[in-house]
Design a protein around this nucleic acid. Structure first.
Ligand SMILES: NC(=O)c1ccc[n+]([C@@H]2O[C@H](COP(=O)([O-])OP(=O)(O)OC[C@H]3O[C@@H](n4cnc5c(N)ncnc54)[C@H](O)[C@@H]3O)[C@@H](O)[C@H]2O)c1
Ligand SMILES: NC(=O)c1ccc[n+]([C@@H]2O[C@H](COP(=O)([O-])OP(=O)(O)OC[C@H]3O[C@@H](n4cnc5c(N)ncnc54)[C@H](O)[C@@H]3O)[C@@H](O)[C@H]2O)c1
Lengths: 210, 210
DNA sequence: CGCAGTACGTGAATCTTTTCACAACCCAGT
DNA sequence: ACTGGGTTGTGAAAAGATTCACGTACTGCG
């Protein structure tokens, strides 16, 4: 199998969401053109992205919506439950915990950790907040697949290390810091500050030019 | 001036943060090699990124840390205050509002909007929550530069339209939906769901292969 | 001063991603 | 069965981003 770029995966993710909309609208077939339009991509790109994983369309007709949804679902691996551990029960952590899209997409937060002794022992819904020292055993017990980091930047790397040590193979990081993880562990970042600075850059550039 | 890619800007943003660390450590000069190492990039990339904007280094010596910080600060346009309007005073909105990094980086939330009549009129710190109907006049009055969207996905596009209508030229969107804005308005997205699905994809792929 | 060492800046090469463009194919209507 | 309109899947070209590699220029030291 060829290498598939991250961007293709990101786009598949948006195709997936859009296809659900099309399904709700009662559409049976959809062309690469229509899908591209709503996704803000080009038809060629849609076809190329899909062709990385097989041939799903019917020439002259387009893609069968229901079929394509289930194909992408299985490519992305979101046809199963994923068990998530959240580290950092602060403001962002609490927003994430109560974020319903999570659950809807089969990502279940099964453990919450915080180093603050005042928070340890409390319950969020049916999940008890535990101390990071117990991460290893709890991660194993609850079969955690994914770790989410929502702690201050300067402790993020040590949390990542603890996650790796506990056997977690996939980490989503919200802290504004570059983290390093060993091969075999996948790390993704969500980085608001960078996006804000991109906005700032574009506005500044336009101002000085015009 | 040549076109500069988004990735260069993202990297400049991380160089900027790392340079502050180096400054704190008391380092006076830094080489592209050292910077690259901490940034998880290559020395050539660091030099190429910087060279888009001028020549800041000293051959044989490296870059003067303090100087480079101020150069990047001015390139990114973060040497001034930016005035931000937050739309959606929900869980994410409240996390964002109380996020201190914001203020530290000179991004000030000067207006908050929510369509929920129970929330309108309340105060968050010294900012009153207003109704989106008043967006246009308030945005003008308070000289808002940047709009942040933290409303449910299905109202995000209409909020974006209102922002554009109010004269906002830069939007940061947290809703999991592709938004369309006219030319001249810059849109950036922060998309957690996509990153989660990327993790899911990678784990699924590895599982089926090994 | 002159020389050895170091690290920048950048043209050229390489690698990656996107776009183009068209053969192959399906379907509906006659 | 044939035709015309429409859409896929994919080589090949184009565009874009990264890496290489080297000329150049500065530093520090004797
Ligand atoms: N608040 C936001 O809107 C926002 C947005 C984007 C990114 N972030 C990032 O998310 C992270 C958390 O932000 P926040 O606003 O929720 O901060 P916060 O201070 O509200 O919460 C951080 C929590 O982490 C806990 N913690 C600290 N060290 C820990 C450790 N070693 N192990 C476990 N728990 C630990 C603290 O006790 C606290 O409860 C930061 O890195 C921030 O940059 C926040
Ligand atoms: N909660 C999270 O951790 C999280 C993480 C990532 C992305 N998001 C996204 O952020 C958005 C908000 O999430 P949330 O969890 O804060 O939801 P929420 O329901 O807690 O808050 C949404 C707020 O938006 C307000 N609102 C609705 N329509 C509005 C309109 N037209 N104008 C102004 N205000 C309006 C509601 O009154 C509510 O207060 C969603 O799109 C979600 O996908 C949330």
């Amino acid at each position: 199998m060829q290498k598939v770029s991250d961007w293709t995966i990101h786009r598949l993710s948006s195709y997936h969401r859009l296809l659900s909309e099309f399904a709700n609208e009662g559409k049976e077939y959809i062309s690469s053109h229509e899908l591209a339009q709503r996704a803000g991509a080009t038809p060629a790109q849609v076809r190329r992205d899909l062709s990385c994983f097989g041939t799903f369309g019917t020439k002259g007709k387009g893609y069968l919506v229901a079929d394509l949804i289930s194909k992408i679902t299985s490519i992305l691996g979101i046809d199963r439950d994923w068990r998530v551990a959240l580290v950092g029960a602060g403001r962002l952590g609490s927003a994430l915990f109560s974020y319903k899209e999570f659950r809807k997409r089969n990502f279940h937060i099964v453990a919450v950790f915080d180093s603050d002794r005042h928070k340890v022992g409390k319950h969020w819904a049916d999940v008890q907040i535990d101390h990071p020292d117990d991460m290893k055993s709890i991660v194993r017990q609850r079969k955690v697949d994914i770790g989410v980091i929502a702690v201050p930047a300067d402790t993020a790397q040590s949390v990542a290390n603890a996650m790796v040590d506990a056997g977690i193979k996939a980490i989503l990081n919200f802290a504004h810091r570059k983290l390093f993880v060993p091969d075999g562990v996948t790390l993704r970042n969500v980085n608001m500050a960078m996006e804000l600075e991109t906005l700032s850059y574009v506005m500044t550039k336009n101002r000085t030019r015009r």
